[in-house]
Write a protein that binds this DNA or RNA. Structure first.
Length: 875
RNA sequence: GGAGGCUUAGCUCAGCCGGUAGAGCGCUUGCUUCACACGCAAGAGGUCACAGAUUCGAGUUCUGUAGUCUCCACCA
């Protein structure tokens, strides 16, 4: 079995080879198995032409950990991957490419040709992100990879649109929408990002038409005045009581406009008079509806002033603003300008200012859908982890506005509505219409717009499993189990999936939503392209190994919290991988048996490690099931490094290097057993290295990733042996500490005298004391030795140990140390005794807690006595 | 204007159902000990933001205060 492995673990070669092995052998496939329970995750589809960033890496790792864990637990685990067509993002990219390389716009090509280009683009770059996910170790069933614009998803989209339309839940209406003049499309509320921007508040004089005076309005967007059709004041405003009902004249334009009273206007803001631009402001639009104000659109789809406004026509909105302000000032209408910081809506894609524009768009009526979506979360059918995000969700859902779903783009699901030029009827159809369903005319034209990207993403959990067809997969794997995503996408996606699933499949799409935070840079800033502070996960994986990167992203993080990315931590995790590698190397170098399982007899140290492992199994499993992945991984880390490597391996060396063949085999088998079980626990977090090592160890079965997850076993709970081992370890630690303080080199061995009531325990530990505490010989006794001259002593709970190294001791330093230690222990004891003399504690605390505290106090007392004695001896 | 998070060792963060605190990095001191210097051993370092409350007992529950970050909201 002796196999020579390199001293330093090289992840690059191992990871690609191991991944290929898994994939070739179908390890990732999700099979319907009537004897198993399904466990399903659908992957949040990344943009098809995107690249993997650190957020994806974390998202991907979390899901992979869960799916690998469940797979090992014996579930029929299915992780469905896929990509999103990402309407605006992709279209913009292709248009940009077209512009730069060919100097063309999409209109030069025409819709059909342009779409061909986008598909080409998709085919060229669509596999990039998949390759990157594979690098991360994602164990998705790639054969089921889906795309939001593939045939099945498109069928689902069509079905949902028509069905909602038939139910009256989709309608077309002229409304104020968020419009991006740069992307030239409508946006949903969720796609608008508000930013505080410094601006100005311009005060403009509007003369009353009857010449009886004037009023002053305040605005942050003077260019919109061209579309003003009224002025509003608060009905309770005494200042303006008399002018309500009169009209005023719009400067520069000359339009006569009514002055109306509306509650919307605040009394104590600005001048108390608000200019009304119903076509370009959502509030004004509402006020306009109440008072029958005219709606005049003055900005076109590109944010340019429309025809009919003289020199302003043809100017873009910012140019027009400048010109209008200048003219107002020149003509004496400008009262004053004050600096004013306000919230400006910007496009989440291009970050240009959004322009509210009145426009005919398609909407989903949210109120009836929100009701059920709220119920399933409120009643716990779908739970958020951590729970606080359910509040974010319900708060949004309770106040949700109708969802604007039409986009003036070409890339996406074209709206399945045909308008009849003859009778004006709208044909809404699952199949492409060839004639008007009402009058039969062939003179029909399809709505040119496409649907919001999130419309198809909203159906993802069921469309990927075959819906609307009743497929066996849908039947078996749906509803899915856990959805993993970042908190930044709750509104965009999670909420919409929930109400869509409730409406169309009559059940919530998953029972748990695991929310994670953002990965930030080392200064706590968001990683972004514009800042150039992004760290490429692929680069990290390449340098330190995907395992190390995964472990970095998971360990020591609480769900839902942002984390900072430190390259140093990647390094530390790489070191951990190397540690496991070398521990395994050690085990294999010493391996002469291929017998599997535990030996018939166990030594004290074997029981110690097995007992600890057993507890680890239970705790890690519990943590995983509670989605406390960061805690789970930290526990495995500690066990491997501290318990297994620092102690257990050292403890086995006596047997491994001794002459007793039976003892050798015994140690080997426990070493292999514990290592194997530990590799299983670590596998979901560090899949590559664990598989690689497991393959090199004696094993049954083909792949570690398909092994059974360890389970707690009461028979492996050895409390006594654990305690005994700890007693010996305490003494080893004490001796090492004393020697370190005295700078005694390891080469200088010492004869030890150990006074202890547990002679048998220490007798069994002789080998460890020799090896790990540098003993040249050990005398065990239950009673104090007669002559302790020239000895330095130290005490532990179960023993007092003498070393003949007194000449090396700095008595004063030693006294100081003991005194300090004594003080600490006495303080601790005082606290304990106070507690134990408190009738409240004795009566109300659970019995086992009281007993434990009593035992602690006893031990402390004994220890204190020993320390005091020692101090006396030194005096 | 609402809602939520965070405030624990020099730095970055863990800490599940309440029983006087942990990790990684950094720092100090030793060590080429036959798996590993991407290492070993020993150490230093914290009144768990502040004030109350509940409790026998509170980083851990509740209330308030301060600082900080984020999300939501139509304030011209």
């Amino acid at each position: 079995m002796n196999r020579e492995l390199p001293k330093v673990y090289e992840p690059q070669e191992v990871e690609s080879r191991v991944y290929e092995m898994w994939e070739k052998n179908g390890c990732f496939k999700g099979h319907r198995d009537p004897d198993k329970k399904p466990f399903t995750i659908v992957m949040p589809p990344p943009n098809v032409t995107g690249q993997l960033h650190m957020g994806h890496a974390m998202d991907c790792t979390l899901q992979d950990i869960l799916i690998r864990f469940k797979r090992m637990q014996g579930y029929a685990a299915l992780w469905v991957p896929g990509t999103d067509h990402a309407g605006i993002a992709t279209q913009i990219k292709v248009e940009e490419d077209l512009r730069v390389n060919e100097g063309l716009t999409r209109h030069d090509l025409g819709r059909e040709k342009f779409l061909e280009r986008v598909w080409e683009w998709k085919n060229k770059y669509g596999s990039r992100i998949v390759a990157q996910q594979k690098k991360m170790g994602a164990s998705c069933d790639w054969d089921r990879a889906r795309f939001t614009m593939d045939e099945g998803c498109s069928k689902a989209v069509r079905e949902v649109f028509v069905s909602l339309y038939d139910k009256g839940l989709i309608y077309k209406g002229s409304r104020i929408v968020n419009w991006c003049p740069h992307c030239v499309t409508a946006l949903s509320d969720a796609e608008v990002e508000y930013q505080d921007k410094p601006g100005h508040l311009w005060h403009i004089r509007y003369p009353l038409t009857d010449g009886s005076g004037e009023l002053v309005v305040a605005t942050t967007r003077p260019e919109t005045m061209l579309g003003d059709t009224g002025v509003a004041v608060n009905p309770a405003d005494e200042r303006y009581k008399d002018i309500v009902g009169k009209t005023c004249t719009l400067p520069l334009v000359g339009r006569e406009m009514p002055i109306v009273a509306d509650e919307y206007v605040e009394l104590d803001f600005g001048t108390g008079c608000v200019k009304m631009t119903p076509a370009h402001d959502p509030n004004d639009f509402e006020v306009g509806l109440r008072h029958n104000l005219e709606t005049i659109r003055v900005l076109d789809d590109h944010g340019v002033v429309v025809e009919g406004y003289g020199k302003y026509s043809g100017m873009d909105r910012y140019e027009a603003r400048k010109a209008i302000v200048a003219d107002l000032e020149e003509q004496g209408y400008l009262v004053k300008v004050e600096p004013y910081s306000h919230n400006v809506g910007t496009c989440y894609r291009c970050h240009n200012d959004v322009e509210p524009i009145i426009s005919a768009q398609w909407f989903v009526k949210m109120e009836p859908l929100a009701k059920e979506a709220l119920r399933v979360v409120n009643e716990g059918e779908t739970k958020f982890v951590p729970d606080r995000f359910s509040k974010t969700y319900t708060n949004w859902m309770e106040n949700v506005h109708d969802w604007c779903i039409s986009r003036q783009l070409w890339w996406g699901h074209q709206i399945p509505v045909w308008y009849c030029a003859d009778c004006g009827h709208m044909t809404v159809s699952r199949q492409d219409a060839t004639r008007c369903e009402k009058c039969g005319s062939k003179n029909i034209e399809r709505d040119p717009d496409v649907l919001d990207t999130w419309f198809s993403s909203a159906l993802w959990p069921f469309s990927t499993l075959g819906w609307p067809d009743k497929t066996p997969d849908l039947d078996y794997f749906y509803p899915t189990d856990v959805l993993v995503t970042g908190y930044d996408i709750i509104f965009f996606w999670v909420a919409r999936m929930i109400f869509s699933a409730c409406e169309h499949t009559k059940q919530p799409p998953f029972h748990t939503v695991l929310i994670h935070g953002l990965v930030r840079d080392d200064k706590g800033r968001k990683m972004s392209k514009s800042l150039g502070n992004g760290i490429d996960p692929l680069e990290m994986a390449d340098k330190y190994g995907a395992d190390a990167l995964r472990f970095n992203l998971i360990t020591g993080n609480a769900p839902g919290n942002d984390m900072r990315f430190y390259v140093e931590k990647c390094e530390a995790m790489r070191n951990f991988a190397n540690k496991i590698w070398n521990a395994s190397r050690f085990v294999m170098m010493n391996l002469t048996t291929d017998k599997l399982g535990l030996p018939e007899t166990l030594e004290q140290e074997d029981k110690w490690i097995l007992s600890k492992l057993n507890r680890l199994v239970k705790e890690v499993t519990d943590n995983m099931e509670a989605y406390e992945l960061g805690v789970a991984s930290a526990k495995v880390y500690d066990f491997i490094w501290s318990d297994y490597c620092d102690w257990y391996i050292e403890l086995t060396k006596a047997r491994l290097q001794g002459d007793d063949e039976h003892a050798k085999e015994q140690a080997q088998r426990v070493l292999v057993y514990v290592l194997t079980e530990t590799l299983k626990l670590l596998h979901p977090f560090m899949p590559f290295i664990t598989e690689e090592i497991w393959q090199a160890l004696p094993h049954e079965g083909d792949f570690l990733m398909l092994q059974k997850w360890p389970e707690y076993d009461e028979a492996l709970n050895f409390q006594e042996a654990e305690a005994a081992m700890e007693s010996v370890m305490d003494v080893i630690r004490a001796i090492r500490a004393r020697r370190a303080e005295m700078n005694v080199p390891p080469s200088k061995k010492a004869e030890l005298t150990i006074v202890t009531p547990k002679v048998a325990v220490f007798d069994a530990g002789r080998g460890f004391l020799t090896r790990l505490a540098y003993a040249s010989g050990i005398s065990l006794t239950e009673t104090e030795p007669a002559d302790t001259a020239g000895m330095v002593a130290d005490v532990t709970h179960d023993a007092k140990v003498y070393m003949p190294l007194a000449e090396l001791v700095d008595i004063e330093k030693e006294k100081a140390r003991l005194t300090k230690d004594l003080g600490k222990k006495q303080g601790e004891l005082k606290g304990l005794e106070g507690k134990l003399s408190n009738p409240g504690f004795l009566n109300k605390a659970p019995a086992d807690v009281v007993a434990a505290e009593q035992e602690r106090a006893e031990k402390l007392k004994a220890l204190i006595a020993k320390i005091e004695e020692q101090l006396k001896a030194m005096a």
